[in-house]
Write a protein that binds this DNA or RNA. Structure first.
Lengths: 207, 207
DNA sequence: TGTTTTTACTAAACACTGTTTAGTATATTT
DNA sequence: AAATATACTAAACAGTGTTTAGTAAAAACA
């Protein structure tokens, strides 16, 4: 009998429906204005129904967080075609900035909000999405080191952390409106120039 | 007649009382659990009273944000005694990490939360506190460049932004629990190692 | 001094929020 | 056909930021 299968399918469809509505509201109005009630309204169900498919708001945000990482990884994939690992690293950096600026709410959810991390902590799970993207960077840096572009006496993971920290800091300062020391119209150029300086620093630090 | 003076003094005292209670609750329970009502309870006044002294919660958070910057600048002052500008820069970096780790809620308020920036935007004011601390970094980097430690063909402000971005990114990744790719006990060592790598990069990038 | 005006404050309400509970139709199984 | 399980919801609970209308006390004015 296929009833249990159909029920499981229907359950999955409902989860998908909730998630799609949540994502839409999230991207349109920001996460502060996305309430359980507004999601329920959008799909024409009662707020209580959402709790039959997600334990709480953290779980819902974790699901959105996973979708966001999928989106980012798809956008990152375009750099894979670049043969030279250092050029690939630079291209990845530009993609990272691009993604953050074009998806500020998603970036927040992925790297700043505590909601998804709390959901993971409740489940005793590790941050798989974060680790996967960290691996993506690690692979590129490994190639750079192997090709002798970088000095390889530096610990790989800590070097990855250094690169990511810079990128994360740069876009976070921008997204969180902490770039007021530069005129409004020049903030993007400043980011560009800072990025070039960092790339120069990376290059220069490896004979 | 000194009545208006006394009234002004009393008004200032009340603002201070509210701010002290707010800061206490903020540091003890985090900003998410610090409500206008809980502050009102703590000082034994009605919630509506707080609105006679602060326009809204953003204004209240802006006031706390200013106090937080004062605290940070006091802690930064200790590096001023270091003669060598590069050593001073390294010491400032360590102070920055120390401050962020010891005052995670304050760091959030200063560099991530939108509340204080919204209050500033309402008032049409610039982010003076941020600019002052940026100047502090700029001064040190200027000295480094003057003494020939750094190449000085790089734009000063963009170089400052690069250094700050790295520091900000590093501590934010840590504070926002995004360092799960490293075991719990080794996260501090990883930060230390990354910091050393960044310092090496800075050194190496200037002949 | 007595009267009017201003000041300081609050109770209560408004419109929200996440979440839980108890109950109701419908679908499935026995 | 009766019993059980499923899917869903109305209503409530305990919060949130904020506003409004009203009240005592203080200050200013006559």
């Amino acid at each position: 009998m296929g009833i249990t299968e159909r029920k499981e399918r229907e359950r999955e469809e409902m989860r998908h429906l909730i998630l799609q509505a949540a994502q839409k509201l999230f991207l349109e109005n920001g996460f502060e204005k996305t309430s359980i009630r507004s999601i329920a309204d959008a799909i024409e169900y009662s707020p209580a129904t959402i709790y039959l498919y997600f334990k709480d708001k953290n779980e819902l945000f974790l699901a959105l967080h996973i979708l966001a990482f999928e989106k980012m990884m798809v956008e990152f994939a375009v750099v894979a075609t670049i043969a030279d690992p250092f050029e690939r690293l630079v291209a990845l950096g530009r993609q990272y900035i691009k993604f953050a600026i074009e998806n500020p709410e998603l970036y927040d959810l992925m790297f700043l909000m505590q909601a998804p991390m709390e959901a993971l902590a409740c489940r005793d799970e590790v941050w798989e999405d974060g680790m996967k993207s960290f691996d993506f960077l690690r692979l590129i840096l490994t190639e750079c080191m192997d090709k002798g572009i970088f000095r390889n006496d530096l610990e790989l993971d800590s070097t990855c952390l250094t690169v990511w920290s810079y990128m994360h800091g740069l876009v976070t300062i921008y997204l969180k409106k902490r770039m007021d020391m530069f005129e409004d119209g020049q903030q993007m150029q400043r980011m560009e120039e800072s990025f070039r300086i960092f790339i120069e620093m990376l290059k220069a630090s490896f004979k």
